Simulated assay, not measured.
Amino acid sequence: MIAPGFEEFLARCRVAAEDLQRDRIRLWMPGPDVFDRATGTTTPGPPTADYYTGQARVKPVAAASGEEVVAADRPVTLTDFEVSVPWAATVTGRPVPGAVVDVLTSPDSRMVGLRMWVTSIEFNSFATAWRIRAEVRS
């Protein structure tokens, strides 16, 4: 049984969480990769879904050490981030791993342009924000 006043307390906590969400992101699903023969580069295809654009909090996961892996015969460092979106955010669908998070604006100008790939999405009715785990691949 939920204690009396809990819903009001949770609502205040969600407002406080939104006060920390000072970044602006775009959450979208890329289409199949596109290979450019002239440059030899591969880029994500045009979006197949545009889930959300709006405020968020983007922060590195404290325990993330930057795992090094090999992809396409070259070393890649994976750095984990947590992206918190307002609890009441309106999204156009349920994002899945493989979706992309782009940081559009941030008080920390070094984060602008950061691209992350979604690895998991957390659902929880007692949460103060909607949390998405993502990784930067550099």
Rank of each mutant, 00 (worst) to 15 (best):
S109F: 07
V96P: 00
W28I: 04
F6E: 00
V136W: 05
S106I: 10
P32V: 13
E8T: 14
K59H: 13
A127V: 06
P32I: 04
T90C: 06
T79R: 15
V83S: 02
A71D: 09
T43M: 11
G113W: 14
S138N: 07
W28H: 08
Y52R: 04
S125G: 09
T43G: 03
D73F: 14
V136H: 10
A134G: 03
R22P: 00
S106D: 06
V91H: 07
V15D: 06
W87D: 03
V103I: 09
T92F: 01
P75S: 15
T92A: 10
R110S: 14
R26S: 09
G93C: 09
A49C: 11
R133I: 00
P44N: 04
P60I: 15
G93M: 08
R14H: 09
E18Q: 15
V70E: 12
E7I: 10
P4W: 00
V103T: 08
E82N: 13
R12P: 00
E8R: 13
R12H: 09
E82M: 13
V76W: 08
A99L: 01
L78E: 07
M116G: 03
W87N: 03
T53N: 06
G98I: 12
A17H: 09
V58R: 05
T92P: 02
P4R: 01
F126T: 12
Y51S: 07
R131K: 02
V103W: 09
V69M: 14
R133H: 07
E7G: 01
A17Q: 10
T41G: 02
G45D: 10
V100P: 04
G98P: 12
L27D: 03
A38Y: 02
G113C: 13
S138E: 03
L10E: 02
S109I: 12
A38R: 06
R110C: 01
T77W: 11
R12E: 09
N124F: 02
V85W: 04
G93V: 08
P95E: 01
W28F: 13
R133G: 00
V91P: 03
P4S: 03
A127Y: 05
P95L: 03
S120A: 08
G66Y: 13
R74T: 09
M116I: 04
P47R: 11
F123K: 02
A16E: 07
T48H: 01
S65F: 12
P46C: 12
P30M: 07
A71Q: 13
V83D: 01
P4K: 00
P30F: 08
A62C: 00
T43L: 13
V70L: 08
A11P: 00
E67P: 02
R24S: 07
W28T: 04
R22V: 11
D36P: 03
E18Y: 08
V76E: 05
V69I: 15
L27G: 02
I2T: 12
G98T: 12
A89H: 05
A127H: 05
A38N: 02
L10F: 02
R12W: 05
